[in-house]
Design a protein around this nucleic acid. Structure first.
Lengths: 188, 188
DNA sequence: CGCCGAGTTGAACTGAATCAAGAAACGTGG
DNA sequence: CCACGTTTCTTGATTCAGTTCAACTCGGCG
């Protein structure tokens, strides 16, 4: 759990007693490549801290599949909207590779918020980070062309380009795999 | 300041002493219609609570102007990205009508976080709300046509349609005023 | 070896942008 | 209260980025 502790300590001071309290609220889980972690329509019960693996957030319907985010190791993952509001998730979380993670249940998360000061601080920090990510995505979708979005992804999040199949990258930047293929040919 | 207090009390219990402490951190300000509240490139120093008026978030360059959000009365407004990170704001905040607001400085906000429990809780609540708003916008931009986005805005945020000039609504849903005009003709 | 999913390529189509011009609404000063 | 200029909104014609449909290549794996 050292990575979680390090994450918390990056946010603010963490007392030994708070850490003991918090550490006991997490449990260890594993997922295989391709496995669904949270299903569309279900209420999210957990906040995950990814030790190893890659997670994809997406929505499927009969015709289209849209990818909203990827989560790599040493970061928190969850169907946040659903977790926060405790309403059914519009999104699905799936493991793109074998994944090991720590997770904390919604109930334990509330305990952490109620009983530790650092809980709310980390919660706020995490929400702020999520908000900033979504903002920059909104900006990209509103003001940049598909080609610009791809090039920025290339320079800003190279780990995505390296590890993720192109069809998911295409759906992440809001275009079809065909369009992405043509863009890649152009910029060669 | 009753509206701020009510806002806080909706989030969690608010002790009288915490409220006294917090209330003293805010100051009263006014803006005229058309006035810029936060300039692009400046670091945001304040979190505003809008008592009355309408705020628009936008980005201008030589050629295009893009609108990212509107904020109405009894809600918090700020160039959040900049406020949170204390880096120059990409966005500009402007008053679309005469506006009166309470505001808290970044320094006082940190004091509130450090010295009251409710501070972090409200901060987390606010970030979570911002995140959810941006998420639903990301979803709309990725999966819906311009026409669908307009219709959803019509039903979900009618106050926007009622009070905001069409050209800003167009830029908010990511199209030109011309395209919006054609959409409106179709659905009418 | 043959199958299957991922990626590429081509051709036709479409939603929205752009350019350009006109109509309607709005505010301001006389 | 009207006349004026300015801004907002609409309409038309053309262009373009990206979709859709369809066919083909490539690499991995039973």
């Amino acid at each position: 759990m050292g990575h979680i502790r390090a994450y918390y300590e990056r946010v603010t001071e963490l007392s030994e007693s708070d850490w003991q309290y918090i550490a006991a609220l997490f449990e260890y889980v594993k997922f295989s490549k391709g496995e669904t972690i949270t299903e569309q329509g279900n209420i999210e019960h957990f906040l995950y801290f990814i030790e190893q693996g890659i997670i994809r957030y997406y929505i499927c319907d009969e015709t289209v599949e849209t990818t909203f985010d990827f989560c790599f190791e040493k970061a928190f993952a969850s169907a946040y909207n659903s977790l926060i509001t405790q309403t059914p998730s519009e999104y699905r979380l799936g493991a793109l590779s074998n994944t090991v993670a720590w997770r904390i249940s919604y109930e334990n998360l509330q305990k952490m918020y109620d009983n530790t000061r650092i809980g709310n601080a980390v919660g706020r920090f995490l929400s702020e980070k999520l908000y900033i990510t979504k903002s920059s995505r909104e900006l990209a979708l509103l003001r940049f062309t598909a080609k610009e979005r791809y090039c920025r992804l290339l320079s800003e999040r190279p780990e995505i380009i390296k590890h993720i199949p192109l069809k998911y990258i295409a759906s992440y930047i809001g275009i079809t795999p065909q369009a992405l293929s043509r863009i890649r040919r152009e910029i060669c």
